[in-house]
């Protein structure tokens, strides 16, 4: 009888603990490895007992770490909105870049990464939405690949975008080089866009959401109107509200917006307050970092504009999130 070593058991236990009970059945049923044994499992048991049953089943089958990482990938692909996702952009495409297919990419990526670091465990899987999912567990000359802290990278073939989760600074150059070589691009750089929801980051970076473009001749804003004295006040206010709404949608988009959690602005600009002469005349910038955060930042900002918390015209810095497709900026004076 084959048996699992302790570290394999530990990895499996950790993974099962991560998956909520109600999602276990669905996740396990997608795993071809377990197809025949699925009927023997009782999903009505408590999670603790269930885990014990599963452990003994795997022990019998002699399940390896590689098999368990398969299950982890199934779970992560189905539930990608965990951890922090960072967007990256490939540039300087070579001539043959658009012809790279999945098999070619797979071979090239594995070969290049193993050449850079021979102690890695790589798994590549293609998802239904054309995205290639890459899971890498990193090791070194002295340690085995660490399966508890894997890096995930998601790349859509024929697009210049890569989304990465759980990458340490140490491994960044290695992954970048392998990706650049496998995709036939010249270089890869930070897109300064990050968030907890992969779908939101992807939609924003690949412009896959409903946008509203400014009309050619924007209507003059109603801001400076005198206080209405006629009986049509309500009508006027309705027009005002409508205008605000339009300005808000032009700035941040229409309909459902990608869920970003944060936007960070590093201010390296001069102090701007006319009443403070001392600081205004100062040459050095007034340094600071401003961070906006919300469960759905773009929605909050759009509401701020449409409800009047933000003054119009809208500051160019805020719509830059959707226009420049990033949420980390350094602001300097021209």
């Amino acid at each position: 009888m084959l048996s699992m070593d302790d570290s394999t058991k530990f990895i499996l236990k950790r993974l099962i603990r991560r998956i909520p009970l109600q999602m276990l059945q669905k996740t396990l049923s997608k795993w071809t490895y377990l197809r025949e044994d699925l009927d023997s499992l009782d999903f009505k048991q408590s999670k603790y007992i269930f885990t014990e049953c599963l452990l003994s089943l795997f022990e019998e089958k002699g399940t390896t770490v590689k098999r368990i990482t398969e299950l982890e990938m199934i779970y992560v692909i189905e539930n990608p909105n965990q951890g922090m996702w960072h967007g990256f952009q490939l540039s300087d495409a070579e001539e043959d870049a658009p012809t790279v297919d999945l098999i070619q990419f797979k071979e090239q990526f594995k070969a290049h990464l193993i050449e850079l670091n021979s102690h890695v465990s790589i798994k590549i899987k293609k998802h239904t939405d054309e995205a290639i999912w890459i899971r890498i567990a990193w090791g070194s000359n002295f340690t085995n690949p660490n399966h508890l802290k894997p890096t995930y990278a998601v790349h859509h073939l024929q697009t210049p975008y890569v989304f990465v989760n759980g990458l340490s600074l140490k491994h960044k150059p290695l992954l970048f080089q392998a990706l650049v070589l496998a995709t036939r691009y010249g270089s890869m750089k930070d897109a300064h866009l990050s968030g907890r929801k992969l779908t939101a980051i992807r939609d924003l970076l690949m412009r896959q959401y409903q946008q509203m473009f400014p009309t050619k001749h924007p209507r003059p804003l109603q801001e400076k109107n005198p206080v209405p004295t006629n009986p049509k006040i309500e009508k006027e206010q309705a027009v005002n509200t409508e205008n605000r709404m339009q300005v808000a949608c032009e700035a941040f988009g229409d309909g459902k917006l990608p869920e970003l959690q944060k936007a960070v602005y590093q201010l390296e600009t001069k102090f701007r307050d006319d009443s403070n002469k001392t600081l205004k005349s100062r040459e050095e910038p007034f340094r600071g970092v401003v961070e906006f955060s919300s469960t759905n930042l773009l929605e909050s900002l759009r509401h701020a504009v449409s409800s009047g918390i933000a003054a119009t015209p809208v500051s160019a810095l805020l719509p830059a999130i959707t226009q420049k497709r990033r949420n980390r900026f350094i602001i300097t004076d021209k």
Binding site: G288, V290, S293, S294, S300, H303, A304
Partner: peptide, 15 residues
């Protein structure tokens, strides 16, 4: 705002 938004301003100590 809806949903509520937090704004954090971290100022350089010298400034």
């Amino acid at each position: 705002t809806q949903p509520p938004m937090d704004v954090t301003y971290r100022v350089d100590p010298e400034c």
